[in-house]
Amino acid sequence: MRSDGNTMIKLSAPFTEEKIRGLKVGDMVEITGIVFTGRDAVHKWLHEGNMPPMSLKDSIIYHCGPVVMQKKEKGRAKWVVTAAGPTTSSREEPYQAGIIEKHGVRAVIGKGGMGEKTRLACEKFGCVYMHAVGGAAQVLAESIKEVQGVFGLEKFGSPEAIWELRVEDFPVVVTIDAHGNSLHKDIEAQSSKNLSDIFGALKK
């Protein structure tokens, strides 16, 4: 499971604590299994103590408001995801740690990174934050093979609902691991130092 360089890792369901703890910051991962979308409304709703109909134990939550169209196939209505890039994760920072703890979520996918509370929850409860490529709505939609269900469509509206998606080889990079590491923290510290050096040279 572990990689030393930048090898590609295939991560398949079930998403056990052991598999998740085997990941480290910088790993490039392709996910196969079920992911549940959830963004602002769902996070607030879970934070208020509501229980979704599905179990989120050992699950993956994706910060995404997909574009989903209903298509007819052999006379039956079928949901198809037509665009599905990540949304900015930092808005869920106030809620994420509590949801990871209470529901046993094993991974969160989004973009832009998350803060200290989430980093600590990932370490303590065995969860990772995985960064999808922002803007890559079409590539990511291609990895979504099937919509297996939806919850809260009326309550939250389509982009905010919990969509149960079956994905294959969904590409992400681990940027917060279950060992207390955060790529966001590291890159920010390094680039800040580089910026000081550049500013220092400008003065001369």
């Binding site: 408001g65 997909p66 574009v67 037509t82 665009a83 599905a84 890039g85 490529v133 922002g134 803007g135 890559a136 709505a137 079409q138 590539v139 291609e142 590409p171």
Partner: peptide
């Protein structure tokens, strides 16, 4: 992934980014 996405959106005539 970005390059692949640029190609795919053009072929599908679909929004490059959902935003």
């Amino acid at each position: 992934i970005i390059c692949k996405n640029i190609d795919l959106a053009k072929v599908k005539s679909a929004p490059l980014c959902q935003d």
